[in-house]
């Protein structure tokens, strides 16, 4: 059976990793290629690059980062951020990315999901969803722009929609849990995982080793993503996997 995946996420701006990364023994802690190779050696199952460049030049730089990374690492990786057209997807896939993450653009033009899936295969298309609990609705709402803009879309309806459009995977971030380190949002993750038959990557809230076991067992996630805890060496990917293995969860 498939192993549960542990995925570190790197925020990249103008070709540099931002959000302090606290690795020792790195020649250059801001170099996304070197960090990616480090995580590969530490046993990461996949990597996600989130390009937060605001400029055209910054995004062009990302293509070069992707090309170099593809030549250095031996695991699959996803690139997301600022992708609005099929041409952007093509450029990044050609440069060596395995999957493309789309978020706001999918909400603005859902046909981007179906077009991408048709052109490159569903397995290349990851739809990223930022969700936050809406107490008035009693369920979760989809947000864009890092949780600033509410869309009026119900998260559980949106995931079904993107699945039917041909998304190959969902990267689900809980805006409620993100940054808290209190654990993944198990209710949200479980509701989404049980709603769709494509893999769900849970993101937001990881703070302790146990949280990964919880999100797989109770949240029914296929993968767990985290940034800070790995960047700051609060735990290593090896430690997380050892804990999971000890509890009978299949990991690589």
């Amino acid at each position: 059976m498939l192993a549960k995946r542990i995925i570190p996420c790197l925020d990249v701006k103008d070709g540099r990793v931002v959000k302090g990364v606290n690795f020792v023994n790195l020649r250059d802690a801001g170099d996304p290629v070197e960090l990616a190779a480090t995580y590969d050696r530490e046993g990461a199952d996949e990597l996600v690059f989130l390009d937060i460049s605001a400029s055209h030049e910054g995004r062009a730089t990302m293509v070069e980062v992707v090309r170099q990374t593809a030549g250095e690492i031996t695991i699959p990786f996803t690139v997301g951020g600022g992708i609005g057209h099929v041409d952007d997807m093509k450029r990044l896939l050609r440069a060596g990315a395995d999957k493309i993450g789309i978020n706001t653009a999918a909400i603005r033009s859902p046909e981007l999901v179906s077009e991408g899936a048709r052109k490159f295969g569903s397995q290349c298309i990851v739809v990223a969803i930022d969700a936050k609990f809406n107490p008035e609705w009693g369920e979760w709402e989809v947000y864009t722009h890092g949780g600033r803009n509410a869309t009026g879309l119900k998260a559980l309806e949106w995931v079904k929609r993107v699945e039917s459009l041909g998304a190959g995977e969902i990267l689900l971030t809980s805006m409620d849990a993100d940054g808290t380190k209190d654990g993944f949002d198990l209710k949200l993750t479980r509701a989404v995982s049980d709603m769709v038959s494509i893999p769900v990557i849970a993101s937001g809230g990881a703070g302790k080793i146990d949280h990964f076991y919880d999100v797989f067992e109770q949240g029914h996630a296929d993968a767990g993503l985290a940034a800070t805890i790995f960047h700051y060496k609060e735990m290593t990917i090896g430690e997380v996997k050892e804990d999971l293995r000890g509890k009978g969860v299949e990991v690589r």
């Binding site: 059976m1 498939l2 192993a3 995977e169 690589r252």
Partner: peptide
Amino acid sequence: YKIPHMGWNKLEFRQKSPLFEGLAEGH
């Protein structure tokens, strides 16, 4: 079940092969 079969899965070696020289089964 989920199709495509996508992700890390474990190999089981069924025969002797020079490809497996010095290797253990893994994902």
